[in-house]
Design a protein around this nucleic acid. Sequence first.
DNA 1: CGAAATTTTGCATCCGATGCAACTATGAGG
DNA 2: CCTCATAGTTGCATCGGATGCAAAATTTCG
Lengths: 202, 202
Amino acid sequence: MGLRERKKQATRRALQEAAVGLTLEHGLENVTVEEIAAAVDVSPRTFFNYFPTKEEAVLGNAPLSPDEESREVFAMGGPTGDFVNDLTHLITASFASWEDVTAHRTLMRLRKQILEKEPQLAPRAFAQLHGAEEGLGRTIARRLGSAPEDARPQLIAATAMSVMRHTMKRLDFHEGEDAEHVRARLREGFHHLSEVYAPSSG
Amino acid sequence: MGLRERKKQATRRALQEAAVGLTLEHGLENVTVEEIAAAVDVSPRTFFNYFPTKEEAVLGNAPLSPDEESREVFAMGGPTGDFVNDLTHLITASFASWEDVTAHRTLMRLRKQILEKEPQLAPRAFAQLHGAEEGLGRTIARRLGSAPEDARPQLIAATAMSVMRHTMKRLDFHEGEDAEHVRARLREGFHHLSEVYAPSSG
DNA sequence: CGAAATTTTGCATCCGATGCAACTATGAGG
DNA sequence: CCTCATAGTTGCATCGGATGCAAAATTTCG
């Protein structure tokens, strides 16, 4: 990787960290793009060459869609044959590089703190998960062999994302949390659902 | 109701309709607050006396939380004794006045069209449901007698909101859709979930 | 009618965001 | 090393959303 590319990565990272740090310190509304840019010693205009909005610098914008191979495996009935368990594999495959997430645990933790302090940002954070929802529904439809007008796959995708969201909310991004750990938590969540929503369980 | 109050309601309604109409016609980004205000023959500044943001005029801001009595009934094990069925009652009670919703079917339909055409607005629309989630979780916790550290009520609330969202997406806001109709659709949704997430159903 | 309360409005201002053109740094080839 | 092409940075102008404030205008009520 050349000098040019390295500098870009460094600037990007620095802007994210400045955005996160300043937001935690003063609150999102009391931090201007001008300040963030100044902290990194870059012009305000450059900030917008890296991030389309201030919020995106604060929250990050992980792409969040399972790779083609994982989708194919899931659609064909794998990897284990158990629907719920396979679903947890598909979901965790969404983190294009889970190592990346764990490598930046500190940043993730700070972002979690921000989300707790600034509820206005929550919708924007959901938008990422929601973006993946439709595609997830299509993959589920393939596995189930559903007719196109069957609404169930989308429903399953929507609730699965809820479980994912619920699970992520309780992650603390420390060492122990690898993909298998997350899958275990997801399985727990799905299990709770099957208990609660079973007929006459109240 | 005095003249003053009536005029306010009229202005509010007119602004919403102008916002919705212009947005459908030209797209959200191509409609300015100035234009919306001009269409209602009101100063731009006045627009912001009614709505804090342009988006809120377009999407509306129904409060969306069940009334105290409905929460109490649910927490105490009613109204039917079946958990899932009672949950559908609690959720539909969230529409402080369902009549209001049905009375403005046209506006609701237009908003639905907007949400399909302008995906950027979806997160903001979810925010309303998300706002109700935590409170719903607490009510569920009361009914289940859960310990405070039990995460299940929040999980149930989150997925219930997903089912609600999924259901609302398929409403078309015509005459037949009263609260009981919606509850039936919700029950269907919950039923699908119990089937799918049941152990070894793949 | 006239005073009090409430709304509307204009004005100034801030800040996020975008397009554009000039400038600067990097990378590749002779 | 120098030069050119390319990519990235910067300043500038501009737009539009949003807010605070104080001066009109309007409704309410005595």
